[in-house]
Design a protein around this nucleic acid. Structure first.
Lengths: 182, 182
DNA sequence: AGAGTTAGTAGACGCTTGTTTACTTGTCAA
DNA sequence: TTGACAAGTAAACAAGCGTCTACTAACTCT
């Protein structure tokens, strides 16, 4: 057994991220995380403090939604629509996005979750917008993003696979344009 | 102590509905429900079987979203937009809707939840629509409905209270019209 | 080579969970 | 009035939880 604190804590963090993304905060136990990481349970607490703090660090791993939002503001609605259409169709979504979808309702993570969504989605979209109350319009876009997560979680991937994906994407684009326009 | 099975089981069901709506499935214990109903814990299991079965019965209590969906199909987008705008602004939402928002990710209730949303929202909206793949369009509307629930749960009531509510409702209406049109 | 630091481990702690069993008590028909 | 059935109760069950303490063993520095 090689002793490498950095590697072990990274394995724990990745295991936590993947398990939280797959099953939700409440359904994942510290022992599950430790087992998945091939580490001892006590180390999880030692390195990350509490379960909620570990969840927060796993959330901060970074999400690709940020790169979707960044870029030309004129194409923002298109990029978001494409992203959501893909998410509805395919099973593979990146871990952090799934973490938010499946986070659950534990009081100890609500503040963490809210701060994360506010900082990485609402604020960043709002920063791209001109005109009055950009945050209000960004919140409407966030409604669709979070709603897609709920639909995907409830109905599973491939719900729309049988029907016209391009048609769905076109509708999503028009809906985003309405939510974002000045 | 009067002994009245019907009254007691009704109090238990109402207590469960209100507590699940307020705190979510995982955060509510059988003992909390029994205490709120002024009944013994064993009675909760005796009358409803398991916690998941109790959740299912509480969901079936009925929701007013169904009456919003019913009615003139031409005004459906307007009615849904108004409903969501009110929900974003005010704190008072009816219990069953909140139950769905805060249900959580427990595997034993996922099927129940999915069936409920499918039957009371997606199918009923789809039944109002003409044209090709009505279920796909109804699912987009459901995305907005569920997304509003997520936003409200995360950011709390009154998020949009400081800004123009009528403006939000107008955008929501246009977005619903796009999701529902043939 | 030996001491000190630190990663890793085993196990227990106390607490909570959903559910069940054995029992008591009220109610109503005969 | 009595006996039976049903409503209600107390307590325990077994299992699981997050967290912490005491310990072992590997690595580093002098």
């Amino acid at each position: 057994m090689t002793r490498d604190r950095e590697a072990t804590s990274r394995r724990i963090l990745e295991a936590a991220r993947d398990l939280f993304a797959a099953h939700g905060y409440d359904q994942v136990t510290m022992r599950m995380i430790a087992a998945e990481a091939g580490a001892n349970v006590a180390l999880v607490n030692r390195y990350f403090g509490t379960k909620a703090a570990l969840f927060a660090e796993a959330l901060a791993t970074g999400s690709t939604i940020e790169s979707v939002i960044a870029g030309d503001p004129a194409g923002l609605a298109s990029r978001l629509a494409h992203r959501l259409a893909v998410r509805l169709q395919s099973g593979a979504t990146e871990p952090v996005t799934r973490m938010v979808d499946r986070a659950g309702t534990s009081p100890e993570i609500q503040a963490i979750l809210r701060a994360h969504v506010e900082a990485t989605v609402v604020k960043r979209i709002a920063a791209q917008l001109d005109g009055p109350h950009p945050e209000q319009r960004a919140l409407l876009a966030a409604t669709m993003i979070l709603g897609t997560g709920s639909v995907r979680r409830l109905f599973g991937p491939g719900v729309i696979e049988a029907v016209d994906a391009e048609e769905v994407e076109a509708r999503l684009r028009a809906m985003f344009e309405i939510s974002l326009r000045p």
